[in-house]
């Protein structure tokens, strides 16, 4: 007898996975391209807070914040308002680029440092364990 998978509507991702586009621009009353709210699906504080920080570092930003609208909906809303020198989409795009560069940089630095050595290496029995 073959083992059968318990059936989940959206597969076994364990989290309430939301179908549909990964990122959408939310409806807004404003005609201002400098302001927009982006809904990013299947992401949480991991991305939200890091993005908020990196976007806020940019010049020309008047507001950037994010929220998890409901704990059982696996999505975040990211609000960006600029002073008009840059569109909200561009600001988000640059923020993403910067954060990608930052993670790439950390990864590179980490692998370099591991290769270089110079850290304390403990092999064999752990002296703390005794």
């Amino acid at each position: 007898m073959a083992m059968t998978e318990p059936s989940y509507e959206h597969g076994t991702r364990g989290v309430p996975y939301i179908d549909g586009p990964k990122i959408v621009v939310m409806a807004s009353d404003s005609q201002d391209p400098g302001s927009a709210t982006f809904c990013i699906r299947n992401e949480d504080h991991t991305l939200g807070n890091a993005l908020r920080y990196i976007i806020m570092k940019k010049c020309g930003l008047s507001f950037c914040g994010y929220s998890v609208p409901h704990p059982s909906e696996y999505q975040i809303n990211l609000r960006i308002q600029t002073d008009g020198t840059i569109t909200a989409v561009d600001a988000l795009h640059q923020g993403l680029s910067d954060l990608i560069d930052l993670t790439a940089h950390v990864k590179e630095t980490f692998t370099d440092k591991i290769k270089q050595g110079g850290y304390e290496l403990r092999e064999g029995a752990d002296p703390d364990a005794e």
């Binding site: 560069d101 930052l102 940089h105 950390v106 630095t109 980490f110 440092k113 591991i114 110079g118 850290y119 304390e120 290496l121 403990r122 092999e123 064999g124 029995a125 752990d126 364990a129």
Partner: peptide, 13 residues
């Protein structure tokens, strides 16, 4: 950019 200082790598059972 961030910097990393490695302190210790433990590789014991």
């Amino acid at each position: 950019g961030p910097t990393i200082t490695l302190l210790e790598v433990k590789d014991s059972p």
